Computed example of a mutant assay.
Amino acid sequence: MSEMNNGTVSIVEVGARDGLQNEPEVFSTETKVELLTRMMDAGARRLEVASFVHPKLVPQMADAEAVVASLPDRKDVSYIGLVLNKRGLLRALATREGDRRGVDEAGCVAVATDSFGQRNQGQSIEDSIRETSEMLRLAKAEGLVPQVTVSVAFGCPFEGEVPQARVLEIIQRLAENEPAEIALADTIGAAVPQQVSDLFGPAREKLPEGIRLRAHFHNTRNTGIANAWAAYQAGAEVLDSSVGGLGGCPFAPRATGNIATEDLLYLLERSDVSTGLSLEDTIATAQWFEGVRGKPSASMLAKAGPFPARG
C-alpha cells in the first residue's frame, strides 16, 4: 500500500454523469438532482454532475445547466462538470456568472489514442494535449479547480493495446499545466490488476506530489473492482465509481457500466480503508434508482446486501 493513502481513499461519484449518459431513457432534471442529493446524503463529497457537450451527441446531458442551477449550495461538496473542448468549458464557467454557485471543478479529457480521440471529441492525441492544456490553464485562471482524465489509458476499442510509455508521456506533459488531479481511465474495461499496478506505480512516481492521481474503471470484463484495489495499492488517492454500476461510453462499442459505488465501498470498508460514505445509504440509493429506471442494477451489493447482515 502506498504511504500516501494511509488507510483512506476519496471517492468521486460519477453516476449522474458517466452513469446516465448512455441510458436510452432521458431522465428529468429533477430525477438527476435527486440522485445527486441522495448520494450527497450518503456521504459523497465530490460528484460529477453533468457534461457540457453537444446535446445531439449526448442527449442525456442536454439539461446540464438546469441540473447545476438546481443543486443545493453545499459548502462541503464539490461539483464537477465534464468538458471536452473550450466551448464546453465556457458553458461550465457560465454556470458561475452573477451570484450563482455553478460548478467547482472542470473535468477535462485527454485521449491516449488517435482513433478514440477522433470519435470521442474530434481530436488527435496531439490536438487533445494542446487543447486540454489550454483548458486547464483557463479553468484555473477563472477560479475552477482544473483536473484531467486520460481516456482509454489501458486499451482502445479501435487500436487495441495502448503502450504504457505513451500514457506516461501524456500525463507528464499534462502535469506541466499544474492540474489538481490526473485520472487514468479504463474506458472500455479492458485492464487487469497487474496492468493497473504496472501503470499506476510509475505514474505516481512521475507526477509531482501536489497532483493527485485518480483511477476510473469500467466493469466490462468483470475486473473493475480488482483493478480499483490494485490502483489504490499502487498509489491512487482517488477512485471513481457509479451508484448501481450505471454507465457506459456512447463512443466505445460494447462498453458497459462503471464499477458500482456500493460494491467498491464494501471492498474498502472490509479492508479497513475509510471513504466517508455510508454503504447502507448508497445501497438504498441504488435500489431507489432501480425503481426509477425500471430494471435491476449491475451492482452485487444491491442484490446481496452487506456482510455481516445489518438490521
Rank of each mutant, 00 (worst) to 15 (best):
M1D: 14
S2K: 08
N6E: 12
T8N: 14
V9M: 01
I11Q: 00
V14H: 03
A16T: 07
R17M: 15
L20C: 03
E23H: 08
P24M: 10
P24K: 10
E25V: 15
V26R: 07
F27W: 11
S28T: 15
S28M: 03
T31H: 01
K32P: 01
E34K: 08
L35V: 02
R38W: 05
R38G: 01
M39Q: 07
D41G: 06
G43C: 04
V53A: 09
H54V: 01
L57Y: 11
P59F: 02
Q60L: 04
A66K: 10
L71W: 00
S78F: 05
S78C: 07
Y79N: 10
L82P: 01
V83W: 04
K86W: 11
V103I: 15
D104V: 10
A106G: 12
G107I: 00
G107T: 00
C108G: 05
A110C: 04
A112Q: 00
A112C: 13
F116M: 11
G117N: 03
Q118W: 06
G122T: 11
Q123P: 04
S124L: 06
I129M: 02
T132G: 05
E134F: 07
L136G: 04
R137V: 14
R137I: 13
P146E: 07
Q147D: 06
Q147R: 13
V148Q: 01
V150W: 01
A153D: 00
C156Q: 05
A165M: 12
L168N: 02
L174F: 08
L174R: 03
A175D: 13
A175V: 11
P179N: 11
P179A: 10
A180N: 12
L184S: 03
A185Q: 11
D186Q: 09
T187P: 04
I188W: 01
G189R: 02
G189D: 02
A191C: 14
V196H: 04
D198T: 09
G201R: 13
A203F: 02
K206E: 09
K206T: 13
L207A: 05
L213T: 01
A215K: 01
F217C: 08
H218K: 05
T220E: 08
I225R: 00
N227Q: 09
A228Y: 08
A230S: 12
Q233S: 12
G235W: 02
E237F: 06
L239R: 03
L239W: 07
D240N: 11
V243Q: 06
G245D: 08
P250F: 11
P250D: 13
F251L: 08
A255I: 09
A255G: 09
T256R: 07
D263T: 12
D263R: 08
L267M: 14
L268R: 06
R270L: 10
S271N: 15
S274H: 15
G276H: 13
S278R: 12
L279G: 05
D281E: 15
I283L: 10
A284Q: 11
F289M: 15
F289S: 09
E290S: 10
R293Q: 08
G294A: 14
K295M: 14
P296E: 15
A298V: 12
L301I: 09
A302K: 06
K303S: 12
P306S: 12
F307L: 13
A309V: 13
G311Y: 10
